[in-house]
Amino acid sequence: MGLIPVLVLGYFFVAIPFWIAVEVVATRPGHRASWFPGALWAGRGLALAGVVAGAFGATYGARDFWHDVWVQLKENYPALLRGYRMTIILTLLSFALAMALGGLLALFRTAEWRLLRAAGGIYVEWFRNTPLLVQLFFLFFALPKLTLPVIGRPDWFLLSPFKAGLIGLTLYTAAYTAEALRSGLLAVDKGQSEAARSLGLNYLQARFYVVVPQALRVSVPLLTSIFSALFRNSALVSAIGVKELLQTADNIQQNNFQTFELFALAGVLYLSLTLPLAYASNRLEHRVRRVR
């Protein structure tokens, strides 16, 4: 038996149990013997050293992998960046459209007229409870075959992959933005709109000048995470042939079989936006909670 297996086994069967035991004993409330702090820090040091050594070993073992990732990045960065750009364009455009449509739907869902409320409700429930992929397939494969009573089967029913993806993402996300905005609208105290009405503003004025600005502030954290989810969901449009990031990575991968490397690259590119967004959403949520 060589030295390294002995060290590894010793680490897992001696150092880690020792550390956990000390940690459990020493962090018991009211039982801090004088030698515990030293033992505690010794245990933590051992554990940390093991993790550092393990990380170093894993990195060293995976150096070929990271080298291959680097080679793939060097060879394919123009295509990958084009895909990334397409993903971002799709996300931004459909988020803007979904905000507009979602705002309208939220106003529908909180309207005084029952029919509008029902229409908004049916839209939101339908698009929230069916998969995005089915909706995309519907837009891309089924819509060209649809014949409507009055307008028949117009040419623009035959959508390009980009348009179908954009419309699909917009319709799906609008259901979520509508709900986020509605929960914001409902969070505004009723007295606000009553006060505005009694000051002489009409229904729409009271909504737009008084209620909506306050509602937006409440829904910002939710909207941030919806945006991040939209960014991730945009990967689905690769199924109908839009050349976005995942599709690009997949195409290259199917040619040169560098599967892990290319998907790792695509993953890093996705994380480059979603991780900051998750952080921002957390911070915003704390801030809104503190203000309220």
Partner: peptide, 18 residues
Amino acid sequence: RATPLLLLIFFVFFGAGR
């Protein structure tokens, strides 16, 4: 939580072959 699900599925599925 921050990775697209489809990417994870492709990663596991195509990666499983390797």
